[in-house]
Amino acid sequence: MTSWSGALSAAMAEAERENIRESTLEGLETAARKGKNPSVASVYRALAEYEKRQRYPGAVEEAHADFAALADGVPEPRSANADPATR
């Protein structure tokens, strides 16, 4: 039973990788039609980010919540048009 489930998992992972590859290539074709040429580095970055989200699904939400908690204590920047007397 273990080898069967392992083979099934491997086949599903391979199918998912192929789907990601096809989607990436379609996205590159669409970008080229729109006159945009993403770099190879940006494609690798996007794929790496996808892999991270798959491995650590809650990490992004936790990071956003932590950032929001930190940002609550940070004052807003002053407007450039503010009255100098109130500075």
Rank of each mutant, 00 (worst) to 15 (best):
A31P: 01
D83Q: 04
T24P: 04
D66F: 08
R21P: 05
G6W: 07
L47V: 05
S3W: 01
N19S: 14
E76R: 12
A32M: 04
M1R: 06
R87E: 15
A65Y: 04
A68M: 12
R87M: 14
R53D: 14
I20F: 04
K36N: 09
N37I: 14
T86K: 15
G35C: 06
M12N: 11
R78F: 11
E62T: 09
A46G: 00
T24K: 01
A41L: 15
E61H: 11
Y50L: 14
P57I: 08
M12A: 15
E61L: 14
A80L: 13
K52M: 08
F67E: 10
E22P: 00
K36G: 00
S9I: 04
A69K: 11
T24V: 15
Q54P: 07
N19V: 02
L8P: 01
R45H: 07
P77W: 04
A63N: 13
R87T: 08
A11E: 03
A59D: 12
A13G: 12
A48L: 08
P75V: 06
S3M: 09
R17E: 02
P75H: 07
A48P: 00
P38S: 00
S23V: 10
S39K: 12
A65N: 06
E16V: 08
S79V: 04
A63W: 10
S42F: 04
A59W: 07
E61W: 01
A48N: 13
G35Q: 05
T30W: 03
P75D: 10
K34N: 12
Y50M: 07
N37T: 15
A32K: 11
K52T: 04
A46C: 02
R17W: 01
R55D: 09
W4G: 00
A41G: 08
S39F: 11
L70S: 03
A31V: 04
E14N: 08
W4Y: 03
S42V: 07
V60I: 10
A13M: 13
D66A: 15
W4K: 05
A46T: 06
E26S: 12
S3V: 03
E22F: 01
R53Y: 03
A65Q: 11
R33T: 02
A7F: 02
A63Y: 06
R33P: 02
